[in-house]
Amino acid sequence: MKNHNRSTSKNVILMVLFIGLVISGCQERYHDIELPQLKPKLVINSIFNEGERFRVNVSANLGRNSTEKYTPVTNATVNLFENGEWVEELIGGQDTINIFGDTIGKWFYFSKKTLPKAGNIYRISVEAPNYEDVIAESKVPQKTIIHVVDTTWVNVDFEKYLRVYLEMRNPSEKNWFFLGTAYLNPIFSSSGAEDVPIIGYNKRYFTFRVNDPLIGTRERRIKEDFPLFSNELFSGDIYKFAIEVNQLNTDRGIFAVDLITLSDEAYKYLQTLTDFKNNDIRYSEPVKIFSNVNNGLGIFAAMNTSCDTVWVNNY
């Protein structure tokens, strides 16, 4: 009897060991993998608007495996061409506009005198030691006018929304557009006076919801697709539609709508950027970010912004 028990215990132990081996054999194991040597390339970042100074960021690519931090390329020579003619060399310097960016976001190359004009083609060439020269160009599209026709407060799913009725002019050519909604924060003077004067406005952008057969359907989400749409299916000179903005984002004050007409390059870049940020499921297709920079990476693309504002009273 004792021997029998001992034999049973032995078998049980063996079986447990065996099952343990099987389960451990099926466990995931990890190995670090080295990627091939990286070819250094210049990375250009500039999406420029009609009437605003050129602002070009130049950096370098890093290996996907590397833990290095980005540093701006500050010794580059950046030349700007307008319709094929050289116009000026951009000057590098700190940018104080971008308050949310990383350190790299503070170093840009600026144009001194040239402001982008609709219909013109702009090209930059960038040279920097240890990198191949890069070239990129983009044509500034024509502005497309947008108007806020009316606003009204509505209740949707127990939440208050500002419904904004808009109309936009339908350009003769097919264009891609980006719609932005913002609240204008007044900037007050720090003079210490009792009736503090407003000396300017900061635009605070936020998302909106829309349900339109041609513009598209979008929920109010933080990580939402870029609301890109085209006028391909518009008919007539004017297209009317409505958007809704959550009350949490809009209060008494100035509400602004930006309609940005995109160049072909800007559209492709933003579209792939949208795909990229949505591509966080492990087994989905890899996203190739659009680039129009020859011999390098990044984007140099034009856009043209039309803006309309409206005073909104409390709901």
């Binding site: 390339k41 970042n45 960021n57 890093l62 971008n98 790299i104």
Partner: peptide
């Protein structure tokens, strides 16, 4: 992906 780049457009 073999490379990473900074998207510094504001």
């Amino acid at each position: 992906p073999t490379e990473r780049i900074f998207s510094a457009t504001s």
